[in-house]
């Protein structure tokens, strides 16, 4: 049990270094977003002159607002559908027994190993042929598909841990099947569903590969793709301030979301999702 102070200090040092490494760039983005164009390159961590100009700039242009709407819509719809389909599949996998189950699980999960990039060219062809290229469904469908293995995997791990006898017990006590499900099973399944929804949402929200290869205009371009165009030739002479502001705007909602559900997520993850 003897842990010397020297060892403790070393461990603490590692921790501090990791936090600085993780957090410093995040705070730096925030700092850049409040700097004026003149002080952008001064290297000061705390802006010497605070300004909201960068935020005003991005919200004044369709180059940001349109992609933001696209991102919100596409990621939300894809997450909802993926989680619902994932729940259905996970329920069958965790609770029912039927011939061909193993093969179907294999088909559903194997895809997680496919390098996305090797499918981008054919997806581009298919979508061009179907007229889905550069539309919302053109991104939503691949997002759902590529999120499904993750959703099925996490959800079936959660569903396996749920004590389903409780449902029967509730029904014996006179609850209707609906009541038994919503009052007994749903609360138990909620952490798993939230965890999955967040992981899927982060995947859709931050995706870049599909976003740049399957879109070409503001009709469906999402924020990550739009940001990469900010860096190139655009109407802003020096886009760093505006990119940082945009980065803050798209990160804040997801951070709030995760902080709000943080306890549930960690509880969810620890209750079996990643247990070997």
């Amino acid at each position: 049990m003897a842990v010397t102070t020297g060892r403790k200090a070393r461990w603490a040092l590692i921790d501090v270094v990791v936090v600085v490494y993780a957090l410093f760039p995040v705070l730096w983005i925030a700092s850049l977003s409040f700097k004026t164009k003149e002080t952008l390159a001064d290297g000061n961590f705390i802006p010497r002159e605070w300004t909201l100009q960068n935020y005003a700039d991005i919200f004044a242009t369709n180059e940001f607002i349109r992609p933001l709407i696209n991102s919100l819509g596409i990621a939300t719809i894809a997450t909802l559908i993926a989680v619902v389909l994932g729940m259905m599949a996970a329920y069958a996998i965790a609770r029912l027994d039927f011939p061909g189950k193993k093969a179907l699980i294999g088909v559903s999960l194997l895809i997680a190993m496919f390098p996305q990039i090797s499918l981008v060219t054919p997806l581009f062809n298919i979508e061009s042929a179907l007229g889905l290229f550069d539309t919302w469904p053109g991104l939503i469908l691949p997002y759902i598909t590529f999120a499904l293995p993750l959703a099925i995997y996490t959800l079936s791990a959660f569903f396996r841990e749920i004590p389903w006898e409780l449902e029967k017990a509730a029904k014996m006590d006179g609850a209707t099947p609906g009541q038994a499900f919503w009052r007994v099973i749903a609360p138990l399944a909620a952490p798993g569903v939230f965890t999955t929804a967040i992981l899927v949402f982060i995947f859709c929200w931050n995706d870049f590969v599909f976003a740049i290869s399957l879109t070409s205009t503001e009709a469906s371009r999402t924020v990550p793709a739009a940001l990469s165009f900010f860096t190139g030739t655009s109407q802003f002479e020096d886009p760093t301030g505006t990119i940082s502001a945009a980065a803050v705007v798209i990160t804040v909602p997801i951070v709030l979301f995760v902080l709000f559900f943080q306890r549930r997520i960690v509880a969810g993850l620890t209750s079996g999702a990643v247990k070997g």
């Binding site: 993780a22 995040v26 983005i29 850049l32 001064d42 290297g43 870049f208 990469s228 860096t231 760093t240």
Partner: peptide
């Protein structure tokens, strides 16, 4: 602590790239 370490995951990689470009800048980078 976990939330702090997890934070970068939430920043879109493209946005992260923009800030690292500044941090690694040859003249003014931190």
């Amino acid at each position: 602590y976990r939330a702090l370490v997890f934070a970068p995951m939430l920043v879109a990689p493209v946005a992260g790239a923009a800030v690292w470009q500044w941090l690694l800048d040859p003249s003014a980078g931190a």
